[in-house]
């Protein structure tokens, strides 16, 4: 069982390393994700559009605000789920 798990892990790791050779090098300014028009748009326009200097906050709360609302709902639901799972016996 452990040998099989080790075998699977090593094969998967080798495949991921092999796939990683096509990805951009560490710290490469020409990487596609950085040169994408979307990324450049966020860096250049986030201040005028959302008024905050922290680009990550502008993305999180303004451009992706609906997603962050869902995220807050996720953490709220997790808290309620743990409460229901563990406090049921006390009542």
């Amino acid at each position: 069982m452990k040998t099989l798990a080790l075998f699977v892990v090593v094969i998967t790791g080798a495949m991921l390393i092999y796939a990683g050779h096509d990805l951009p090098a560490f710290g490469d300014i020409n990487s596609p994700s950085y040169q994408a028009p979307m990324t450049q748009y966020f860096i250049n326009n986030s201040l005028e559009e959302s008024g905050v200097t922290n680009i990550v906050t502008a993305l999180l709360a303004s451009y992706r605000g609906y997603d962050t609302l869902g995220e807050t709902a996720v953490i709220f639901t997790a808290g309620m789920a743990v409460m229901l799972l563990l406090r049921r016996r006390e009542r």
Partner: peptide
Amino acid sequence: DPAEVSKYLIDLVEIGIGITV
């Protein structure tokens, strides 16, 4: 200034997130 409004409402939203968390 709409950008200013956006800034304060983002702060409000962050406060909401902080209270929940």
